[in-house]
Nucleic acid binder design. Structure first.
Length: 486
RNA sequence: GCUCCCAUCGUCUAGUGGCCUAGGACACCACCCUCUCAAGGUGGCGGCACGGGUUCGAAUCCCGUUGGGAGUGCCA
């Protein structure tokens, strides 16, 4: 790492050159134990941009808060990014860096600001600040220690001396945003214990890592003038800012882990395909050209532009995600589908592990591929193939077996299936014969058979299912159901 | 409260002054297909928050109102 930061407050030509090199984007999550879908979208935006500009995606773990630090959480972030297609082995990828590793650098920068008169020490406690605010009727810190000339000491915080004037943030998605500096309080750079605050650490790291483009969620917009002031105070031209709208729930509140399902890992565990998640996330706040939103990543990389990102918050709609996923599941080749299903057929499944037969599943797979929203729906759709006895749904039973032809259709199938040619066609012919002889509809007569064999009224096509199940087992199930009818 | 952001069908969006009688997708409804359920096909429902301007002309530009949201820590 170079130390462009601490030494020289870059000359004009240096500043210019920073922005002429290939852009450097960054994604700077704090490790919190799970990966937020909002973070996923931000990461994807940065990744797409880095790819299309020939730039770099820098991953920095913002772990300066002790309570948010755990090595396995960092691994979780890297795994989640990899799942999204953001591979740490890519030449476009850099990091992970750890903010905590730069703590000394942050302090040096803060002290330099103090030496230059751009920051000052303050000994007021949070309570004292509150009291003063209450008395004066104004909010926040009032700059009490600005000219007291205090030095460092136990419990003394270092505050940034916000200059007079106005700070203009040029934002690629927001446009020009103006902040009057007198609405920005002298914020803390160094805590009473000497440790650096996020705002400082973030800026120092960005400078240190030669970040040229900061693309992050809108919630950081109010921080931006402070950070820009810091960039300038440290002698550098600020990066190109872009604040994308936040993701919200149905109440239009920012997605929070408390009330909303936000963990990427959870969607993954439910069998949302990575491609579907990526595609869906990219359509929140942005849309590809044309009349379909289902587009390959390569097209997204070609077309995505921050200037086209919507300005208002987007509702993270699980239903639409699921629809996207259904599309992606159906796009899979049979072999790909079987492969994708694999993790969902072991472990917590409704059948005993030793009864599972991969080849049986393989032949049933095409029948269920169009029938699931997420991969986790698969077991419930094929459980009858691997259970010793089908799990009979009571409602399905009472509804279908109460018909006056239920016993007869079971008898007819029992009889006909014994000698028919074994295949969906032959099996269907048996039921057809009975159905016609009674002047009924196939839709009616198949129901008792389906319940007897699979336990449910809905499921994959019956005749193919029976074919896969096998003659002997089918006959056994039909007989079992028939005997229950007395 | 203060600072900032935002405002097109229920939702995600297209739209950058005339191609808009506002397009697509999800959801929903109907029909077709059909052994159930899906998938697929066809059609339907449904929107420029409101009020002023500017303009020959406004969803598109300006102002205001209203309504949402974010931030407001010695968290990140």
């Amino acid at each position: 790492m170079t130390d462009t930061l601490v030494r020289t407050p870059g000359t004009a030509s240096q500043l210019a050159s920073i922005h002429m090199d290939a852009p450097r984007y960054r994604f700077a999550p704090s490790p919190t134990g799970f990966f937020h879908v909002g973070g996923a979208r931000t990461a994807l935006y940065n990744w797409a941009l880095a790819l299309r500009t020939g730039g770099t995606f820098v991953l920095r773990i913002e772990d300066t808060d002790e309570s948010r630090n755990s090595p396995e959480w960092t691994q979780g972030i890297i795994d989640a990014l990899a799942w999204l297609g953001i591979e740490s082995t890519s030449p476009r990828f850099e990091g992970p860096y750890f903010q905590s590793a730069n703590a000394e650098l942050h302090r040096v920068a803060a002290l330099r600001l103090h030496a230059e008169g751009k920051a000052y020490w303050c000994d007021l406690t949070a309570e004292q600040i509150q009291e003063r605010a209450k008395e004066s009727g104004r909010q926040g810190y009032d700059g009490y220690s600005r000219d007291r000339g205090l030095g460092p000491g136990p419990g003394h915080v270092l505050r940034f001396r916000v200059p007079e004037g106005m700070t203009v943030v040029d934002d690629l998605v927001r446009g020009r945003v103006e902040f009057q500096n007198d609405t920005i309080e002298d914020f803390v750079l160094l805590r009473g214990n000497g440790s650096p605050m996020f705002l400082l650490a973030n800026v120092v790291d960005d400078i240190e890592m030669r970040i040229t483009n900061v693309v992050r969620a809108e919630e950081h917009l109010p921080n931006t003038p402070k950070q820009q002031l810091l960039w300038e105070a440290l002698g550098h031209a600020p990066p190109v800012w872009a604040h994308v709208p936040v993701l919200v729930n149905e109440q239009r509140k920012k997605l929070s882990k408390r009330r909303d399902k936000v963990a990427l890992e959870q969607y993954r565990a439910e069998g949302i395909l990575a491609d579907a998640m990526v595609n869906y996330l990219m359509t929140l706040g942005w849309a590809p050209a044309g009349d379909t939103e289902i587009v390959p990543w390569s097209r997204i990389v070609d077309e995505f532009r921050l200037e086209d990102v919507n300005h208002s918050p987007a509702f993270f709609d699980v239903k639409k995600l699921s629809a996207f996923n259904g599309d992606y599941v159906r796009m899979l080749t049979p072999a790909e589908f079987i492969d994708a299903a694999r993790p969902f057929l072991a472990g917590d499944v409704p059948w005993p592990a030793d009864r599972f037969d991969q080849s049986v599943f393989d032949s049933a797979a095409p029948l269920i591929q169009t029938r699931i929203g997420a991969l986790a729906d698969i077991p419930a759709m094929v459980d009858f193939l691997f259970l010793a006895d089908p799990k009979i749904d009571p409602d399905a039973w009472s509804k279908t077996m109460a018909t006056e032809y239920a016993a007869d259709v079971l008898d007819a199938m029992s009889e006909g299936l014994r000698g028919c040619a074994w295949g969906a066609e032959g099996i269907k012919a048996v039921l057809d014969a009975f159905t016609e002889s009674r002047g009924l509809k196939l839709g009616k007569t198949q129901a008792p058979v389906r319940v007897a064999v699979t336990g449910r009224t809905v499921g994959p096509p019956l005749f193919e299912s029976i074919e896969i199940l096998g003659r002997e087992e089918t006959l056994r199930r039909i007989a079992a159901a028939r005997s229950r009818l007395t």
